[in-house]
Simulated scan of single mutants.
Amino acid sequence: MNTTAPKAYALAYLREVDLGPEIVEYIERIDETLAPYGGRFLVHGGRITPAEGEWDGDIVIIEFPSAAAAEEWYASPGYQAILPLRTEHSQSIAAVVEGVPEGYRAVDKLAVLLAG
């Protein structure tokens, strides 16, 4: 069994972004906040092809080696210093979500769901 902690992802859904100097500064500075925590962009506002529902914004997904690393990044002084540049100039929601271990299958979730 794989005992390595699964990767984690910082997710954001951004709507009504005011692409002014504050957002430009946020984008220019975010990479330097990610590096110490092993974060890397997987998705950064790429083209969305809706399959269900209405998508009226941009998606950002940043991968981290663990949930702890993602949470430490979000709480870090470096990221907290630039966070208002995004939150005060866009409508957005964000979260950290833990990934699944290597070899995971959807049916593995049944054991968790049915045990509770």
Rank of each mutant, 00 (worst) to 15 (best):
G57C: 00
Y74T: 07
L34M: 14
Y26E: 11
V97S: 04
A68V: 13
T33R: 08
V107Y: 02
P77T: 08
V24K: 15
L110Y: 01
P6F: 02
R47C: 03
A94H: 10
V97W: 09
I30E: 05
D56F: 00
A94C: 09
P36N: 06
S90E: 06
G99V: 09
V43F: 05
I30C: 04
G38E: 01
P36S: 08
I59F: 13
G53R: 05
G39K: 11
I93H: 08
A81C: 04
E52M: 01
A115Y: 07
L42S: 07
P6A: 02
E16W: 06
T3W: 01
A81H: 04
G57R: 00
G46M: 09
A67C: 12
I82A: 05
S66A: 14
A5P: 09
Y74D: 05
A75P: 09
L34E: 06
I62E: 12
P6S: 01
S90C: 01
I59E: 02
E22H: 15
I59N: 02
A111R: 15
I48R: 12
E98Y: 00
L110F: 04
L11A: 09
E52N: 00
L114G: 05
G46S: 11
R47E: 13
A111F: 12
E88F: 01
H44P: 00
A51P: 00
L113W: 13
E28D: 14
H89S: 04
Q91D: 12
G45K: 12
R86M: 14
G45W: 12
R15C: 07
E54V: 11
P65E: 02
G57Q: 00
E28P: 01
I61H: 00
S76L: 06
K109N: 08
E16V: 01
A68I: 12
D108E: 06
